Computed example of a mutant assay.
Amino acid sequence: MREWLRSKREFLGLTQEEIASRAHIQRAYYTMIESGRRNQSVKVAQMIAMELNFNWIIFLNFKVTK
């Protein structure tokens, strides 16, 4: 679980749907990223990070292992 990602989104008062829409991805895909079930591309990481106002590099520290 990427608790830090969920906390950041909730702190800003945004829904998963809003972040997904702004990042141009499906809400289900965003949900899997936030829950830690999927990794995202660099481009998607950058778009999410831009919307939530953090450095996208943090995603590299929290990769999902299969």
Rank of each mutant, 00 (worst) to 15 (best):
M1A: 04
M1I: 10
R2W: 05
R2E: 03
E3V: 14
W4K: 07
L5M: 02
L5I: 01
L5K: 09
L5Y: 07
R6E: 09
R6Q: 06
S7F: 12
K8V: 14
K8E: 14
R9D: 07
R9N: 03
R9V: 11
R9W: 08
E10A: 07
E10P: 10
E10Y: 04
F11M: 06
F11N: 10
L12T: 09
L12Q: 12
L12F: 12
L12N: 08
G13T: 08
T15Q: 10
T15H: 04
Q16G: 15
E17K: 15
E17Q: 14
E18T: 09
E18G: 07
I19V: 15
A20K: 03
A20D: 00
R22Q: 09
R22F: 06
R22H: 14
A23V: 13
A23M: 14
H24I: 13
H24W: 05
I25F: 00
Q26H: 14
R27K: 02
R27F: 05
R27M: 01
A28E: 14
A28I: 05
A28L: 07
Y29E: 06
Y29W: 12
Y29Q: 05
Y30C: 03
T31N: 05
T31Q: 01
T31W: 04
I33A: 04
I33N: 01
E34A: 11
S35C: 08
S35K: 05
S35D: 06
G36F: 05
G36S: 06
R38Q: 14
N39V: 00
Q40Y: 06
S41D: 08
V42K: 03
V42A: 11
V42Y: 13
V42H: 10
V42I: 15
K43W: 05
V44T: 14
A45I: 06
Q46N: 10
Q46Y: 11
M47F: 13
I48D: 00
I48K: 06
A49I: 00
M50R: 14
M50S: 14
E51L: 03
E51N: 12
L52Q: 03
L52A: 04
N53F: 01
N53L: 14
F54H: 00
F54S: 05
F54W: 01
F54L: 03
N55P: 12
N55F: 12
N55W: 09
N55T: 08
N55G: 08
I57Q: 11
I58Q: 12
I58P: 02
F59N: 06
F59D: 02
L60Q: 13
L60I: 07
N61S: 05
N61R: 11
N61T: 03
F62T: 07
F62W: 06
F62V: 13
K63Y: 02
V64T: 04
V64Q: 07
T65E: 12
T65Y: 07
T65C: 04
T65V: 10
K66R: 11
